[in-house]
């Protein structure tokens, strides 16, 4: 696959995680962030914690943060919808400053959702009062740093929605993965 103009490089996210001193990535696979996972496995400064349901990610991140580590949660919007009570109790209720990187399944910039997961994602975030930033391409990536700053200053979760316009990250080198 050739580079697409406006695409999103997984290395960009890795760079932002490192720049913001992230120690652990609590993660469950999703199609939007698969290429990121491949790179994360090769990044020695980040400890990957694989969960089997997204609600676990919030309580795991809570424990990491209370212990002085700096986790990030990497999940799909479908899993975010599943995780409401854990998000409420283990992160919001315990004032955990964590960034949620959420694969925005079903979203397109044309306003036509291809999946109801996208239809409800922003409504869900509004209902919980969670600030979020949409990131579609490398050009938007500075919003990731803003999300980390806001999480830290408010001691609350902040979401980064990874737009699916290009079906996830650009695959820079097809032989690499």
């Amino acid at each position: 696959m050739a580079d697409q103009e406006g695409g999103f490089s997984p290395q960009t996210i890795i760079d932002h995680l490192k720049a913001n001193n992230v120690t652990h990535v609590v993660w469950l696979p999703d199609s939007e962030t698969n290429f990121l996972y491949v790179l994360l496995q090769e990044e020695p400064s980040l400890d990957l914690i694989a969960v089997s349901r997204e609600g676990q990610a919030f309580s795991t991140a809570s424990g990491l943060s209370v212990g002085g580590a700096k986790p990030v949660i990497l999940i799909q919007n479908t899993g975010l919808l599943e995780s409401g009570d854990s998000l409420r109790g283990w992160v919001m209720g315990m004032n955990i400053p964590v960034v949620l990187m959420v694969g925005y399944r079903g979203w397109t910039r044309h306003g036509v959702d291809t999946d109801t997961a996208a239809t409800y994602t922003e409504h869900f975030l509004h209902a919980f009062g969670i600030k979020y930033y949409l990131v579609e391409s490398d050009a938007d990536a500075d919003r990731i740093a803003v999300a980390f700053e806001r999480a830290e200053s408010t001691k609350q979760p902040v979401a980064v929605l990874i737009g699916d316009e290009f079906h996830g990250f650009v695959q820079r080198n097809p032989n690499q993965y």
């Binding site: 990610a57 919030f58 309580s59 795991t60 809570s62 424990g63 990491l64 209370v66 212990g67 409420r88």
Partner: peptide, 23 residues
């Protein structure tokens, strides 16, 4: 001691895992 009460049922094991990995 970390008597958290019940932030959300089902999460204590993962919370403790996170704390154990951080420390």
């Amino acid at each position: 001691d970390v008597p958290l009460g019940d932030p959300a049922m089902g999460g204590h094991a993962s919370f403790a895992l996170g704390l154990a990995l951080a420390r």
